[in-house]
Design a protein around this nucleic acid. Structure first.
Lengths: 349, 349
DNA sequence: GTGAAAGCGCTAACAC
DNA sequence: GTGTTAGCGCTTTCAC
């Protein structure tokens, strides 16, 4: 391997340095400027030189060092992903929760398609700060909550960022992408209504993010439009299925409802199980719906109707907006993506 | 904010540069060398100067620029994660496959605990290579297969890496961590044998990784030790549940077995469903086991006995080994972690 | 005990 | 059109 060398430095095995721009310049018989310009499509070079340099570089397998380039250009080709919901949960691998992990997967492959690297960065405000955190070109922040310190930090440093789920209490901020929660919530509530439900319970999480807040808002308006009394329960996201089972007891004690709309799949699975354990029949006595699909919802018996989020389209939109922001262009945002409601046995009457 | 400035460069909004080592040096009335030494515990400085510099740096909120530091020291505080199984699948967010997603989550939180950032890198051998790919301190490669080109590339560049699941055909390579597949497989086969199974089928995937190869090996030896004829089926990982359903037909045609041991949860769920559709009773006629737990296994009816992998312990071990490697220490490896067998209704006789 | 200076690999003024 | 050169922020050698 040309130009490769290995060495030790203070006990740290340094990586093999690859081929440098200098190696290419020497081989191609030009200056390093020429190489830089040729490869970045800048400056004024004859097409012949350009082509020649490109060929040589290709042959040698030259890849520009991202660090050196970043140091100079202050743009890295890498963006960070902060999952605020998981930060809040304090658990980056909660059992049976696949929405976030699916989002990570989708975001990674969408980033790939744009030749961007995606870096998972844990809560930026906690010390010690991950070293690369402030060198990244921008951030995707999922489900920021009210007065989110991560967002405050990014703004303070003027690092571009986009939010998945609008940052609550920031009407002036537009760089967000979300599934159309309002439309989906109304679709679900309408579906339940059509199934005969007149007494529908909403179970939301405790995190003060747009997901929880907007759903609550829509639910309350929807109830008041129809003159029915809202029945709202809050259950910590971290409580999971077991929390749902417990909550089912409370709900039933308050009066068995016609339908329960849980914002998370785990809560829905737990509530359904808890209700059934008390002899409530699903869907005959009570219908159950989850606001976000998951294996829990799919594989409960009866299978729970749920909203299938759209991580692929959403992460694509987020990256588009973020790239515009990074490039100094004005992005078209906010953007709403379309989730898809999956009616299953739990609401089939 | 001290030393902060914003500027445009070729239409690109550059990130706000933070406080530099120079700012700290000026404020503390020392040279930049002194600052560097004080903050990194190197050189020979009086404890007084050291302390003074640390205080000033803290006050100013100085954070060393990871890029500049990396360029000089070539260690970044970030590691890459390559999921070879998903590369093979060509899908980074396959529905219902949660082993990898759980592993990503676990690896992320373990990395967090070590102040490392985690970058998801798809197949490194495919162009274009993500910019930071070759600047990372090291890699975790999950389920490398025989003659894996990603491993060849990392070795060529002498980038430290560890494997989750031993690289097949590389007996001399020891930097790997794995659940103890051999022990688990024997435990499962023993469990089935104890349940009366004398004709157990193994369904493995087609990817030539250690997971598939070692299980097959154990299965074949185990059969020969007991003088029973092995019945081995291969099914592409990507075939999922539906592939399992189809395969159930073939298996039944060849003779309904006493038990089926599928290496993936999706295959197990499919095979069970396919068998039951043909009137085979589970577990009465045939027991079904999955080699890796998943929501599919848990939520099938009857629930499928499965091996619960240990992504948290495994990723912790992987990062330990990788950090040793990066630091030039000799790691204790390979390391085996303990998976846990969950007996469920599908094998309860 | 301390600091000046070289240089990591790259980009972009600015000279030629 | 092409090349020389000055840094980006940091670590480290080596003079003082």
């Amino acid at each position: 391997m040309l130009g490769a060398q290995k060495w030790k430095e203070g006990g740290v095995v340094a990586r093999t340095r690859g081929i440098t721009i200098r190696d290419v310049a020497r081989k191609a018989g030009v200056s390093i400027t020429a190489v830089s310009h040729a490869l970045n499509g800048k400056g004024t070079l004859s097409e012949a030189t350009r082509e020649h340099i490109r060929t040589v570089a290709d042959q040698m397998g030259y890849e520009a060092d991202a660090l050196a380039r970043g140091l100079r250009r202050s743009t890295m080709g890498a963006v960070g992903l902060v999952l605020r919901s998981l930060d809040a949960l304090g658990d980056y691998a909660p059992a049976g929760v696949d929405v976030f992990e699916r989002f990570v997967g989708a975001a990674a492959s969408q980033a790939l398609a744009r030749n961007l690297s995606l870096m998972l960065v844990p809560d930026l405000t906690r010390k010690p700060v991950p070293p690369l955190a402030f060198s990244l070109d921008g951030y995707i922040v999922t489900n920021p909550h009210v007065d989110d310190p991560v967002i405050a930090l990014l703004e303070d440093r003027s690092i571009p960022y986009v939010a998945y789920g609008r940052p609550p209490g920031r009407p002036e901020f537009t760089h967000w992408v979300s599934e159309d929660d309002t439309a989906s919530a109304r679709q679900i509530l309408g579906h339940l209504w059509a199934g005969g439900a007149r007494d529908t319970v909403l179970v939301r999480g405790t995190d003060p993010n747009a997901w929880n807040l907007e759903h609550q808002e829509v639910y309350v308006s929807w109830c008041s439009e129809r003159g029915v009394t809202p029945r709202l329960y809050e259950l910590a996201e971290g409580a999971g299925v077991d929390g749902g089972v417990d909550l089912a007891g409370r709900i039933a004690d308050d009066g068995v409802p016609d339908a329960v709309f849980c914002l998370t799949g785990r809560h829905a699975a737990g509530v359904q199980r808890g209700l059934m354990a008390r002899g409530v029949r699903v869907p005959e006595d009570t219908m159950v719906v989850a606001g976000s699909d998951s294996e829990h919802a799919r594989n409960s018996r009866p299978a729970i109707s749920a909203l299938e989020l759209n991580p692929v389209e959403s992460s694509a939109a987020l990256l588009d907006v973020l790239q515009d922001l990074i490039a100094g262009r004005t992005p078209t945002s906010p953007r709403l993506t379309k989730a898809r409601f999956r009616a299953r046995a739990s609401t089939r009457r």
